[in-house]
Design a protein around this nucleic acid. Structure first.
Length: 273
DNA sequence: GGTATTTGACCTTC
DNA sequence: GAAGGTCAAATACC
């Protein structure tokens, strides 16, 4: 049952990536920038898939190996690791978010450092952090912090995975798709100030891997009806970003994937892609 | 004494 | 086999 759900979500995510590839071929370059509606929507959809997959994954672990490992190793003496097989795997999280900041703290979450590594061909070591509530709440979010080589006063912070320890961070950042900072529903001005001071140069979304064929039917089967919005008015519906560290503000507007699909049918090459 | 950090070892991926 | 990610005992800090 759980595997079926994961399979369907995975298919939906792959189809979204193919949709993104298709749109990149058809949309003008100015409509594809990091702060465009296009990038925001794609990130939002992929983020929803990632969050669902992450939740399913963490549920599975919470009942099993994760808690076993915690009770076995905390506070104990050095143990022989001979029986340690496949206890973890390199995180193949398809979605991540990289920011450049002056400070590594004050992103609204509490982190615990669990490692530091000298990276080949990099001047500065990389530090590894996990969410403090990894074991308490099964939160799988991690981040990597590395001093920028171009500007040593800046830190490149990569957030991996989504926080499941709470719904929204206290210091969440609201940005519009046009790149300007905005406030959230509670109209707290410090949010915008926070954005201006801390996020220095870029918010880079990754996870758009190559995939040529668009099978939108997969997307329609796997993706529930979602609430999407566009920028421009005062009515808001805050949707948490895939990064979990900033939000986007939109008008409320409902899209059904049937509608989207009907739009794509207008493209003559759609059926053959 | 409890908690966080350091750091070398271990493990996975490419 | 190299490089990167994670573990976990030892250590530092409060």
């Amino acid at each position: 049952m759980e595997e079926t759900a994961i399979d369907e979500l995975t298919r939906g995510r792959e189809s979204t990536i193919r949709l993104e590839q298709f749109l990149r071929k058809t949309l003008p370059p100015e409509a594809q920038g990091p702060n465009t509606t296009f990038a925001g929507l794609i990130g939002e959809i992929l983020g929803s898939f990632d969050k669902a997959l992450s939740n399913l994954d963490s549920e599975g672990r919470r009942s099993g190996a994760l808690l076993d490992r915690r009770s076995e190793n905390f506070g104990g003496k050095k143990t022989i690791r001979s029986g340690r097989k496949g206890g973890y795997r390199r995180r193949a999280h398809p979605y991540s978010c990289t920011q450049q900041r002056k400070k590594t703290t004050d992103d609204g979450y509490t982190w615990r450092k669990y490692g530091q590594k000298v990276i080949f061909s990099a001047k500065h070591p990389r530090s590894y952090y996990r969410c403090t509530y990894k074991y308490d709440k099964g939160c799988q979010a991690t981040r990597q912090v590395q001093r920028s080589e171009d500007d040593p006063t800046l830190y490149e912070i990569t957030y991996i995975g989504e926080h499941t320890c709470r719904d929204l961070p206290d210091s969440s950042i609201i940005i519009n798709f046009d790149g300007t900072a905005a406030t959230n529903n509670s109209n707290q001005p410090q949010k915008a100030e926070y954005f201006d001071e801390e996020v220095i140069s870029k918010l880079v979304m990754t996870g758009f891997s190559s995939s040529e064929n668009l099978v939108l039917q997969d997307l329609m089967v796997s993706m529930p009806k979602v609430e999407i919005a566009s920028c421009g008015s005062e009515s808001t519906s805050d949707l948490q970003s895939p990064c979990g560290s900033f939000d986007m503000e939109f008008d409320e507007q409902l899209f059904d994937f049937d509608d989207i699909y009907s739009q794509f049918r207008a493209y003559p090459d759609f059926e053959t892609m």
